[in-house]
Design a protein around this nucleic acid. Sequence first.
RNA 1: GGAGAGAUGGCAGAGUGGUCGAAUGCACCGGUCUUGAAAACCGGCAGGGGUUUGUAGCCCCUCUAGGGUUCAAAUCCCUAUCUCUCCA
Length: 434
Amino acid sequence: MLDSKYLRQDIEQAAARLATRGFELDIAAVTALEEKRKTLQVQTQELQSERNASSKAIGQAKAKGEHEKAQQLLDSVSNLGDQLDSVKAEQDAVLEELKQIALAIPNLPDESVPVGEDEDQNVEISTWGTPKSYDFEVKDHVDVGQDVNGLDFEMGVKISGARFTVMRGQVARMHRALTQFMLDTHTEQNGYTEMYVPYLVNSASLYGTSQLPKFAGDLFHTLGLVDDDGQQQPGFSLIPTAEVPLTNSARDEIYDESDLPIRLTAHTPCFRSEAGSYGRDTRGLIRQHQFDKVELVQLVKPEDSMQALEELTGHAEQILQALELPYRKVILCTGDMGFGAAKTYDLEVWLPAQNTYREISSCSNMVDFQARRMQARFRRQGEKKPELLHTLNGSGLAVGRTLVAILENYQQADGSIVVPEVLRPYMGGLEVIK
RNA sequence: GGAGAGAUGGCAGAGUGGUCGAAUGCACCGGUCUUGAAAACCGGCAGGGGUUUGUAGCCCCUCUAGGGUUCAAAUCCCUAUCUCUCCA
């Protein structure tokens, strides 16, 4: 959510900045509603003030035993209630309308973000590593995985359906080893605290990190219980990323300045409906309804958040480097960024079979956008007023896609897969999957 | 599954219709005293919003959440959520 004061004061500028990411702000509508809000709010408060004063006077009169005076006052405020109710109802309707608009406005892009319409205008920042050359025909991860009997797509379809996969044996073990390696790296070297969090969350959390109200269709939702009156109660939703539970740990909190920065990491499965992505990446592990991810979240002071984004992205890069997987770092243009992001770097890993780079991590600075929705704040030493903190999140990394990258980059002519050195301690010293 | 109790400021805890946004204690912050600290004493100490040039003043809202009764609700009623106790 954007700062409503900023929106009021400089709606033209806000609209211009939002336009760079393809969002059209209806200035006339917002301004008109805002005018209405102002009038109604002042009216409501004046009536409330009047009522409060009278009530107080009635109480005092009764306490002194002045019953006649009390009765007079009572008569004079008799119709105040109805007036107040109608004005208040009008005000509530306007406030609700403004709130719905506010919840649907995306974040302002940071000044440093290149302006562009879609992913074609994203800008490569750097590359790391050199794609290997192979003296044999490279297979994609589907064939590599199936040939060692480690990936079973048919079984996933049987058990659940499309976009579900079963892993088996040493491949499943490597998948587990990857999460262990990632978590250990982030907790032991990068100062993150490991968290175990719920995978089912309430709607308040989803509003907090801004999956709701706009992106309900991207999520899986459970049905709530049916109560005694036969009413369907609201259910939980499956997390699309650990960003939701991790970031919402700060919801309605006021931290001491000395608590910050807070760095959290968690390994969770992620669940996405992938509605609207029919036909895309239907082969293989790239786009699944369920996949594992190690997530990095930081809660920081506003002045530290841009530096924190660089560091957080570096933490994700560290995993790719340790696994010796070639990748590139891209800054997303205004048109390709997620709803709540002010600035985003994507890390894309080299996939030899596709002869291209594919996203494996997305690291974003949300600045105060989520914090405002969540009322996640901190108090500076010696200051009275709490301030909104800044939130960041990034994948460190998507585990399934990392496995894909290893299967493809570490394949050998005989169909076996070399285990990256850093993973061997996690796999009982295993060097090759045959 | 059955019965009951509860949810108040950072924490503990009073308040059961009328100057209560809320006693008191602890914690915290500032000051006096002290070489320094402790103790003692003095003072401060919830959040959100509106109006406004204003971090001034004034006003509104918030005692788990939502609804209701009333001129007036932390206090009465209903619902939800959570916590605890006892029984099976």
